Simulated assay, not measured.
Amino acid sequence: MSESTTSTTELTSQYIARVTDDLEHNLKEQERVAAEIAALQEQLTALQQDHTVLVNMQQALGITKAPAESAVTPESTAVPSPRQNPSAEPSGRRRARKATASQASPAARKPAVKKPAAKTVPAAKTTQPTLVELIRRHLTEQSEPRSAAEIAATLDQAYPERGIKTKVVRVTLEGLVAKSQAQRTKQGSSVFYTAPDALEPAVAPQAEEKPEGTDS
């Protein structure tokens, strides 16, 4: 009896040690995977911010092509908890949705098909001036040169919902200068922008000041 008790005790100790090691290994693997997910989440956030800046620059340059939507939605970036049960609740929700869809009558689904409000969305977008138009209009209204930061601050105050940034305004101004739709001057280390000067005729004043001839 003593030998069998001793062997049982040794076997139990071996199982306890094995389970303890496996548990520690499992916890370390969870920490490693969580760290990788956090790093990927940071990279995704940076890419989404770059995507927003590029879309703003595309609009500032007057490109009419619709900007590409981000392929990742906020819901898809959420990190799932490792202790959730993925099989029980979703199946119940699917059954509930199927039951609700089967009970809905065709007459109740018909009003949901009509979306008259969607027709007014393109009209609202077309009436909103582009950033290029806003900057051109602002330059023509100024009597003195303005810097990109000053123009961005004025437009952002007038249109706070657009989130106008100085970097985007500066890129837009450089594009207008390249198209001869704006002039750039430099004072020291600062750069200022003005509207293009209107061409003034130089022949008319000379015609008016023509000296009178003397009779010979």
Score class of each variant (00 low, 15 high):
residue 6 T to C: 14
residue 9 T to R: 13
residue 9 T to N: 11
residue 14 Q to C: 14
residue 14 Q to F: 15
residue 17 A to D: 09
residue 20 T to N: 10
residue 22 D to L: 15
residue 31 E to G: 13
residue 32 R to L: 03
residue 32 R to F: 07
residue 36 E to G: 15
residue 38 A to M: 10
residue 38 A to T: 07
residue 39 A to P: 04
residue 40 L to S: 02
residue 40 L to D: 00
residue 44 L to M: 15
residue 46 A to K: 15
residue 47 L to D: 07
residue 48 Q to E: 15
residue 51 H to N: 07
residue 52 T to K: 15
residue 55 V to L: 01
residue 56 N to T: 13
residue 56 N to R: 09
residue 57 M to N: 03
residue 59 Q to A: 08
residue 64 T to W: 11
residue 65 K to L: 15
residue 66 A to D: 09
residue 68 A to M: 08
residue 69 E to G: 11
residue 70 S to Y: 14
residue 76 S to I: 12
residue 77 T to R: 08
residue 78 A to P: 01
residue 79 V to M: 04
residue 79 V to T: 12
residue 81 S to G: 06
residue 84 Q to F: 05
residue 86 P to A: 12
residue 87 S to Y: 12
residue 87 S to Q: 05
residue 88 A to V: 14
residue 88 A to M: 11
residue 88 A to E: 07
residue 90 P to M: 03
residue 90 P to I: 00
residue 96 A to K: 12
residue 99 A to V: 04
residue 99 A to T: 09
residue 101 A to M: 12
residue 105 S to P: 00
residue 106 P to R: 09
residue 108 A to G: 08
residue 109 R to P: 00
residue 114 K to N: 06
residue 115 K to E: 04
residue 115 K to H: 12
residue 116 P to G: 00
residue 117 A to G: 06
residue 117 A to S: 11
residue 118 A to T: 13
residue 118 A to P: 04
residue 118 A to Y: 07
residue 121 V to R: 10
residue 121 V to M: 13
residue 122 P to L: 04
residue 123 A to P: 03
residue 124 A to N: 09
residue 125 K to G: 07
residue 126 T to G: 08
residue 127 T to I: 15
residue 129 P to Y: 11
residue 130 T to S: 11
residue 132 V to K: 07
residue 134 L to N: 01
residue 134 L to D: 00
residue 135 I to W: 02
residue 139 L to M: 03
residue 145 P to L: 10
residue 145 P to F: 01
residue 145 P to H: 04
residue 147 S to H: 09
residue 149 A to Y: 10
residue 152 A to H: 02
residue 152 A to E: 02
residue 157 Q to C: 03
residue 157 Q to H: 09
residue 159 Y to I: 02
residue 159 Y to V: 03
residue 161 E to Y: 11
residue 163 G to H: 05
residue 163 G to N: 07
residue 167 K to Y: 05
residue 169 V to W: 01
residue 171 V to D: 01
residue 178 A to H: 02
residue 179 K to T: 05
residue 179 K to Q: 06
residue 180 S to D: 04
residue 182 A to D: 00
residue 185 T to H: 13
residue 186 K to H: 08
residue 192 F to E: 01
residue 194 T to S: 14
residue 197 D to I: 01
residue 197 D to K: 01
residue 198 A to E: 04
residue 202 A to T: 06
residue 202 A to E: 04
residue 210 K to T: 15
residue 212 E to I: 09
residue 216 S to Q: 10
